[in-house]
Design a protein around this nucleic acid. Structure first.
Lengths: 339, 339
DNA sequence: TTGAAAGCGATACCAC
DNA sequence: GTGGTATCGCTTTCAA
């Protein structure tokens, strides 16, 4: 059986409340040195360890937050988690990581569970997060921050990347290399991210007087496989593109595979640009030109934002927008003569 | 303010204990249908949500476990975590994920924190985990299972892979391709894993009457950078190897980069074999021949093992040994004439 | 069939 | 300077 505060108090011959005060270093506590030492000694001798559950019940705060993500094996998330975890750890919080496999039911079940566990807050990290899930958190009055997903509701904090700008960077890069037949494999168009990257694509074409052709636009889920399938469609049209802007790196990787499988080369025949700069992006062949998103920072800032909400610290801004940057590697090059 | 059991009881005109019984579906409870319905209605109307913290305090069990890993951005761990999380979720447990960045201090601090939070058990997932850390968990009587690390202590459960066998697979593959000058970039030799893979390497050389040469043996940490550095050493010796067995995929990747940077090719000049088959292994150029370890299963079985310890279910075996298999890709080929 | 009450371990307000 | 005690929300034994 674990040692309790009361046992420590008994051994030191004082009241439990006094022990509690000593442990928590109650600022307005004046205590005789000798008493304090007796208590400290008792703690030491009994190897006393506070029970955080009892403490939480009393204090109505657990020092624990939840983080909901679709899939930790998607290389986007480990970096984000790492950032969030660092921030949490610095502030003495722990994170319960919840993997939903993109199942909305699991998402809701997790919110329910986290609420029952009385977590102090939740990080909702996914463009996929259902509105219903967000509403659940809101309804239960549990502080939350959206990561990589914009907030519809007033007052819900979020950390996102400037997707329009990032997409502009990517597409302009292709234009600068002389490409005119530029396709876009967009993300899901019911996600902010998907929509905004598409917007950046359109704007950039526009600015360069390149007409937007609907057959150069294919929607895909954010996976390698979907990227592959989408690219196959693009390859099938009479005048295939010479450059492809994919909504994320996984899609870009899939697209590159499709290109190769169809007997063409990246970047000789078709240039490919991704988005996010996951760790993998620099390691594949050819190394992927992509738009770098500060994933670690995203997680870190998201938790910081959550902590501020939890602790009632002032927040400069509800919505933090991170600025991405272009990373040029080997999957893009100037359009070839045959292009 | 959240609704409590007592409020529900008041509204239903019954005693809190009765509500509790209904909620927990107390088997030996006989209750009038009408009363039950009144209670259910009250729960519904007040949107009552149980407080797991209070419940935990009373029950002395939290339904939460901790998982300690060195670095979630190391592609080895997301898969393992995913498996563990699935098993946990199936059994109604949540997982607090703790990233230690390989810092022994952080490791110990986390054990302390988890113990205070009264987690029901801990998964220690890393070959790096310090003995001291394990002892801490043991001393506090908190059930734990080691993942990818053998246990010294009697009675501590673990899930590991058969490293000797895996290494034999890798080296024999090289031998079968005609290689005789086979080097090994070992992992850290104070880790079980490092030692056993080295053992498999030696045994296989032996079995094939190939002498073990100490200059063909370089120790490295399990990282890309260290793999690179180690390979440079191997390249510097008069008769460099034609085949390299790296203790894990990250090392193998680094080694491959070093080879290329020195103007040679993989596998034309030097064949490289890795270990683990992380997701990345099949995507790099050239795709890596490696020894596949069932990472997801490893996590899943580890949590199952932990759950059994926690719930006092019978365990067939304390130590679960998973069998790896060879995955031949393009980073190995028959030794060339010039080799 | 249901109620009363003790208690899990810690905190904090109010006394003295 | 230190002690008493109510309380956080829930479970469970014992009664009735």
């Amino acid at each position: 059986m674990a040692v309790t505060l009361k046992e420590v108090a008994d051994r030191a011959g004082v009241n439990p409340s006094t022990v509690s005060r000593v442990i928590n270093e109650d600022p307005n506590l004046s205590i005789r040195e000798e008493t304090r030492n007796r208590i400290l000694r008792a703690i030491e001798e009994l190897d006393y360890r506070p029970n955080a559950v009892a403490r939480s019940l009393r204090l109505k705060t657990t020092g624990t937050a939840g983080m909901i993500i679709p899939d930790i094996t998607n290389p986007f998330f480990p970096e984000v988690f790492k950032g969030a975890e660092s921030a949490a750890s610095e502030r003495g919080f722990s994170l319960i990581l919840c993997n939903t496999n993109e199942d909305p039911e699991k998402e809701k079940a997790y919110i329910k569970l986290l609420a029952e566990k009385q977590v102090d807050g939740i990080l909702l990290a996914s463009t996929y997060i259902q509105d219903e899930t967000i509403d659940m958190a809101a309804k239960r009055n549990i502080p939350y921050v959206l990561v990589n997903r914009a907030s519809r509701n007033e007052g819900s904090a979020s950390v996102v990347v400037d997707d329009v700008y990032g997409a502009e960077l990517a597409v302009q890069h292709l234009v600068d290399l002389g490409h005119r037949r530029i396709a876009h494999i967009s993300g899901l168009l019911y996600t902010e991210t998907g929509l905004e990257r598409l917007e950046g694509y359109r704007r950039t074409l526009n600015r360069n007087q390149i007409p937007f052709l609907s057959e150069y636009m294919v929607e895909a889920k954010y996976s390698e496989r979907e990227g592959y399938l989408a690219m196959e469609k693009l390859l099938a049209i009479p005048q295939p593109p010479t450059g492809v802007f994919a909504a994320n790196d996984l899609i870009a990787l899939g697209a590159a595979s499709a290109i190769v499988d169809h007997g063409l080369n990246v970047p000789e025949d078709i240039s490919v640009v991704g988005f996010n700069d996951i760790w993998l992006a620099g390691k594949v062949h050819p190394p992927l030109t992509t738009v770098k998103v500060p994933l670690y920072d995203m997680g870190y800032l998201a938790f910081e934002s959550l902590a501020k909400k939890i602790l009632g610290e002032p927040m400069e801004q509800d919505k933090i927008v991170l600025r991405p940057e272009l990373v040029v590697r080997a999957s893009t090059r100037a359009v070839s003569a045959r292009g």
